[in-house]
Design a protein around this nucleic acid. Sequence first.
DNA 1: TTGTTAGTGATAACAATATATCAATAGCAA
DNA 2: TTGCTATTGATATATTGTTATCACTAACAA
Lengths: 125, 125
Amino acid sequence: MERNTRQRDAILDVISGAGRPLSTQEILAAGKAAVSSLSIATVYRTLRDLVAEGHILPVKLPGEADRYEMARLDDHYHFKCSTCSKVFDIHDNIKKNNLHVPRNFVIDKYDLILYGQCSDCVPKH
Amino acid sequence: MERNTRQRDAILDVISGAGRPLSTQEILAAGKAAVSSLSIATVYRTLRDLVAEGHILPVKLPGEADRYEMARLDDHYHFKCSTCSKVFDIHDNIKKNNLHVPRNFVIDKYDLILYGQCSDCVPKH
DNA sequence: TTGTTAGTGATAACAATATATCAATAGCAA
DNA sequence: TTGCTATTGATATATTGTTATCACTAACAA
């Protein structure tokens, strides 16, 4: 970055304060609390720059647009609530030697995505 | 389906013979071996019907178009080769009680995707 | 065979992001 | 302050994968 703008600060604040990956629309909505004129174009541009600078990472789920969260979080995977569509970080990992692949296959990394109900959406009894 | 066409047979043969999930373009290319005039529109229409009839299932990977494989395969997950982009079935499963989620979260299902090199693409030494 | 009509092929249209454009605005160095 | 220009906001455009359209073809019952 070359200049420090209110828009950029607002976007980074929103992501670092969220504690879970946010969609571009969530970032736009939350960012408008700080800069009411904030445009979706600026959100996309700033996210691209923040990713390039290594501050944030895209979180990819099948069939869905990227969400974003702070980089350098602990090893973790993601949980998507099927009811409210929020995605949560699960700070845990699976041991790679528990994963069995065919002979001569090499594992670089893995993505584990859990689907279900978060505590706000699970039916009470 | 109402009629049994050469196109439909070719598409189902390609998928059932592949042993791994195929993209629409892979299905189109392989299907043309049997029906050289095969159109991508027919591929999409037939895939939609075969899914609706329960013969095949879409395989969803983050940021990628759906692939397709036969339904009623054993419990398994997927491995994507980062070099050749092929996706392979891994016939294994992880125990759900090995997965730790926050209190009051409920897991319905999970997707595990491994990334790395398949045996054809791993560097020989 | 033949007639009916489901299915096909070619391509236009669509949907859902994401990027490019450009005049206006606002960081920030001097 | 002022001036330069990076950044912004609004919106047009691009992109990618999928679906709709429609004239033509072929499956199959009679």
